[in-house]
Amino acid sequence: MYEGPVQELIDELGRLPGVGPKSAQRIGFHLLTVDPADIDRLVTALRRVKDEVKFCTVCGNVAEGELCKVCGDQRRDAGLICVVEESKDVAAIERTREFRGRYHVLGGAISPIDGIGPDQLRIAELLKRIAEPGVSEVILATDPNLEGEATATYLVRLLRTFPDLTVTRLASGLPVGGDLEYADEVTLGRAFSGRRAVDA
């Protein structure tokens, strides 16, 4: 639609996840109007993230060194491992300040349609960690969608072979502030099956 570098920029922006054609165009034209120093900062940030960011050798989370901040923190409970799909999930859980254990990032979820099977995920590394002494609980915190459920089910079958290991799944149900009429059947069903007693 546009010529040369402008269209190339829009095309490249459109390849980013969650950025549709209109958003790509809007961002592209915004970048044309900003100060060159702002562009330089963006380019530097993109280069640094590719050059300097690694993945933690223990859990697979993003890290600047061999270990991420969580794995490097000796105050964290190494007996609790929360299994997530992506590093962004670690950030979401950390914002709650409720979990004081360690993480394991799978690098995705089982999705036969996308050609992602168990061998493409960091499942072997998880099993190796669990085999080490001291791990008492694995919390499955995969996404509550078809792929996340398939991944959790697969992991439950594998983890049953570890004696004395407690395997739990994050509760799911109605969001705070939500309306019942807008809840889908699966969410509402889980809210009923996960109901708990209320103290008087």
Rank of each mutant, 00 (worst) to 15 (best):
residue 125 E to G: 14
residue 120 Q to R: 15
residue 72 G to A: 02
residue 114 D to I: 00
residue 62 V to E: 07
residue 97 R to K: 14
residue 122 R to V: 01
residue 99 F to A: 06
residue 27 I to R: 00
residue 57 T to N: 10
residue 151 T to L: 07
residue 126 L to I: 09
residue 139 I to H: 08
residue 147 E to S: 14
residue 121 L to P: 08
residue 153 T to Y: 04
residue 93 I to L: 15
residue 122 R to K: 14
residue 138 V to W: 02
residue 37 A to V: 09
residue 78 A to W: 05
residue 53 V to K: 05
residue 26 R to T: 08
residue 153 T to L: 15
residue 89 D to S: 08
residue 69 K to N: 14
residue 127 L to E: 10
residue 125 E to F: 01
residue 123 I to K: 00
residue 52 E to L: 04
residue 69 K to A: 15
residue 54 K to W: 03
residue 151 T to M: 09
residue 34 V to F: 03
residue 126 L to Y: 04
residue 159 L to N: 05
residue 85 E to W: 00
residue 65 G to S: 15
residue 23 S to L: 11
residue 32 L to E: 10
residue 116 I to G: 02
residue 111 S to K: 01
residue 145 N to L: 09
residue 111 S to Y: 01
residue 40 D to I: 00
residue 49 V to F: 11
residue 33 T to Y: 03
residue 45 A to C: 06
residue 62 V to P: 11
residue 122 R to D: 12
residue 73 D to T: 11
residue 71 C to K: 09
residue 146 L to V: 15
residue 94 E to V: 11
residue 126 L to G: 04
residue 118 P to I: 03
residue 43 V to W: 01
residue 138 V to G: 05
residue 32 L to G: 10
residue 121 L to S: 07
residue 133 P to A: 07
residue 28 G to D: 01
residue 151 T to C: 08
residue 158 L to P: 01
residue 109 A to G: 09
residue 88 K to V: 13
residue 149 E to S: 10
residue 94 E to R: 13
residue 49 V to R: 10
residue 110 I to F: 02
residue 119 D to A: 12
residue 37 A to W: 00
residue 92 A to C: 10
residue 149 E to L: 02
residue 84 V to M: 02
residue 73 D to S: 11
residue 102 R to K: 14
residue 41 R to N: 02
residue 158 L to D: 01
residue 137 E to G: 08
residue 102 R to H: 13
residue 105 V to L: 03
residue 56 C to Y: 01
residue 99 F to T: 09
residue 48 R to V: 08
residue 108 G to H: 05
residue 138 V to R: 01
residue 145 N to V: 12
residue 89 D to E: 07
residue 23 S to P: 06
residue 47 R to C: 05
residue 107 G to H: 04
residue 104 H to I: 06
residue 119 D to M: 04
residue 75 R to G: 12
residue 77 D to R: 12
residue 158 L to H: 02
residue 36 P to E: 09
residue 156 V to L: 11
residue 36 P to K: 07
residue 98 E to I: 11
residue 91 A to N: 09
residue 58 V to M: 10
residue 127 L to I: 09
residue 90 V to G: 05
residue 49 V to D: 00
residue 45 A to F: 06
residue 108 G to S: 11
residue 43 V to I: 12
residue 103 Y to M: 06
residue 36 P to L: 01
residue 59 C to G: 09
residue 35 D to Q: 13
residue 45 A to S: 13
residue 126 L to S: 06
residue 28 G to E: 04
residue 47 R to V: 06
residue 24 A to W: 04
residue 109 A to K: 12
residue 126 L to A: 05
residue 76 R to Y: 07
residue 119 D to G: 09
residue 62 V to L: 15
residue 74 Q to I: 11
residue 107 G to S: 06
residue 64 E to T: 12
residue 142 T to W: 01
residue 133 P to G: 10
residue 80 L to Q: 15
residue 82 C to N: 08
residue 87 S to A: 15
residue 56 C to A: 08
residue 65 G to Q: 13
residue 84 V to L: 04
residue 157 R to H: 13
residue 103 Y to Q: 07
residue 101 G to P: 07
residue 118 P to F: 03
